[in-house]
């Protein structure tokens, strides 16, 4: 096969990874309490939690975009010290380069990997085919819908053949139908390519639908509350009883924390608010 040598999926280990920020008035904020976690090669791990629980911070540390204030992350036998093209990332707001056309975006990382122009084009087309967008290769990102943009971003990320892919609420800005369709496509692609995936969302259903394991995080300060193995076979049916019972369990855990954090914030009412979904 011509093109980049496919990287095997690699394990990811987090050892005492923590992050604290200093605010302008000299206080420190614990964004993330020490996290220990082993992610096996080819695993689809989903981190779910309310906003402000430090899940994006965690992902940025793993991707090498932010440095931790304590602890370390290892991909295989390499310590994460900065961004690396071997670790891909899909962003919530697509982050397509607006001055490049669709295929130019997919080729961006391949060019950085110094793959010759002609091969680059072929590889990029293959990955556009994977997300069903070959007809849009010459279009500009602004001409695409949100769902199509995210498919381009997914193709761009997979095209560089990273061994790990981070996804930061990738479907958060999309409507429910597009979201459902892309979740399905992502699972298909993941099953073909068997990458290690760390996926962040605040949707419990999305987490259970996609994950091998769900990591439940809580806010203020961010820490892992529960790690849950999801053993349902794919494709999963969100309306099935098994799915529903897992969902109930996750919500029960989340509620406990939400009530706690609302209590801390809303001392004016005294009583915990009713949580409505």
């Amino acid at each position: 096969m011509i093109g980049p040598k496919p990287n095997l999926a690699k394990p990811l280990s987090l050892r005492g990874l923590a992050k604290r920020y200093a605010t302008a008035d000299g206080r420190t904020i614990e964004a993330l309490l020490p996290v220990d976690l082993e992610i096996t090669p080819g695993e689809f791990l989903v981190v779910v939690g309310p906003s402000g629980c430090g899940k994006s911070t965690l992902l940025n540390i793993l991707a090498g975009l932010t440095s931790p204030s304590a602890g370390e992350a290892w991909v295989g036998d390499i310590r994460v010290e900065g961004p690396d093209i071997d670790r891909g990332m899909v962003f919530q707001d697509y982050a397509l380069f607006p001055w490049l056309d669709v295929i130019g975006n997919v080729e961006f990382g391949l060019e950085r990997k110094r793959i010759p122009r002609r091969e680059r084009r072929g590889i990029a087309m293959r990955y556009l085919e994977m997300v069903g967008l070959t007809d849009f290769a010459e279009k500009r990102p602004r001409e695409l819908s949100g769902g199509m943009k995210q498919r381009v971003a997914i193709a761009r990320t997979f095209a560089t053949e990273p061994s790990i892919i981070f996804m930061d609420e990738p479907f958060g800005a999309l409507d429910a139908l597009t979201r459902r369709y892309l979740q399905h496509q992502l699972l298909r692609i993941w099953q073909q390519h068997r990458k290690t995936v760390v996926f962040i969302t605040h949707s419990v259903v999305e987490a259970i639908y996609l994950a091998d394991r769900v990591v439940l995080m809580t806010a203020r300060p961010g820490r892992i509350k529960t790690v849950l193995k999801i053993e349902l076979p794919h494709p999963r049916d969100p309306t099935s009883d098994e799915f529903r019972s897992i969902e109930r369990r996750v919500y029960a855990d989340l509620d406990e924390e939400l009530v706690k954090s609302f209590r801390m914030e809303g001392s004016d009412t005294g009583s915990p608010p009713t949580v409505i979904y």
């Binding site: 991707a63 975009l65 900065g82 961004p83 690396d84 093209i85 670790r87 891909g88 990332m89 962003f91 982050a95 380069f97 961006f108 990382g109 950085r112 990997k113 761009r156 560089t160």
Partner: peptide
């Protein structure tokens, strides 16, 4: 876009 560039190999 800066983050995407760094992730995609502009280190």
């Amino acid at each position: 876009l800066i983050r995407a560039g760094r992730i995609l190999g502009c280190t």
